[in-house]
Design a protein around this nucleic acid. Structure first.
Lengths: 171, 171
DNA sequence: GGGGCTGTTTCGGAGCGGTGAACGGTGCGT
DNA sequence: ACGCACCGTTCACCGCTCCGAAACAGCCCC
């Protein structure tokens, strides 16, 4: 929650971190234009119901949007309040995937990260990926392979537009 | 622009198509909770400035958020937050179509883009187009044929409605 | 020595690109 | 009007590459 325009620097800071934020816009002022889904505003004086509705909408969006998994200080992979412990190699691979969550990470990138010195056969990565896949299912995470390119970590039941079949429900 | 809760069915329809929408919430009613970034609301009676600000924010989000498909750095075709992976040839074809989204791209243009050197048999492009069509359905995209001219990429609004001929600019 | 971690082999299967063929629609020539 | 050539769509098929997971075998460290 940020007052606007009083706390502009705090707003910029929050934008950087990607945290959801609600602006309290001073009477007679205009809210700043933003294309960020995790930013919204209300005008002061604030209507109680309006405030609650905006906060609810923001948090709902935040849950669907800016939710990132992370590898914490203990090496645990955390997501949506749940966690799993990962063996060293899988953790390295998972770290690389988490760093580029939602984007493709090349096979060679992952291979170099996991085996900086000598590299084993090709399937070694596949095997670890396969095992990682099984392990992160309880977190609601999934690894999608992008053929000839690499792998992509994402939340399952999340937009990915599965080709083929399966449960498809809009939004 | 939708009145709420009067035009609930229209709202559902707009949600399906992914169009940005602004709800006019009746006094004393609560806006529906949605995690969709392209949905917002104002309360009636509407303050003029507030309305303009909300509309501006919505359109800004809509533009940034992909009312327009794109091929991202990883070669993925993204649209409305969803994505599909495309094989090389289909990707080049799709790239050409995305570059001129909503406009016709000639068959020969597409053929030259896909096969700069030699060209295969007559229906090679058709086959790839057919496969591309199937693949982009989950994104809500569709390729339309403009006979004797080429193809046209567009968002499919809703299954079944208009099917006129000649120039048309849906949505 | 048992359980978890790691690497290799192996094989089944999916994805891709090109061709041929079947089908239907459109327009043209006679 | 009729037949016919042509265009566009889709399916089936083949050769090929790539990926996935199971099975098996060393390894380390409590």
């Amino acid at each position: 929650m940020v007052r606007w325009p009083d706390e502009e620097d705090r707003l910029l800071q929050l934008r950087e971190t990607g945290a959801p934020r609600l602006l309290f816009v001073e009477a007679g002022r205009e809210p700043p234009l933003s294309d960020d889904c995790l930013e919204d505003w209300v005008r002061v004086p604030v209507d109680e119901r309006e405030l609650r509705a905006r906060v609810n909408a923001l948090t709902a969006r935040a849950e669907h949007h800016g939710l990132h998994p992370e590898i914490d200080d203990d090496g645990l992979l955390r997501f949506r309040g749940r966690w799993v412990d990962l063996p060293p190699i899988e953790r390295t691979v998972a770290t690389a995937l988490v760093e580029r969550f939602g984007a493709v990470v090349g096979r060679d990138t992952l291979t170099r990260r996991a085996w900086p010195e000598q590299r084993p056969t090709r399937n070694a990565l596949d095997v670890h990926m396969s095992r990682l896949r099984r392990r992160i299912v309880p977190l609601g995470l999934g690894v999608r392979t992008v053929r000839a390119r690499g792998y992509l970590l994402q939340a399952v039941a999340d937009r990915g537009a599965d080709q083929g079949d399966g449960a498809r429900w809009p939004t």
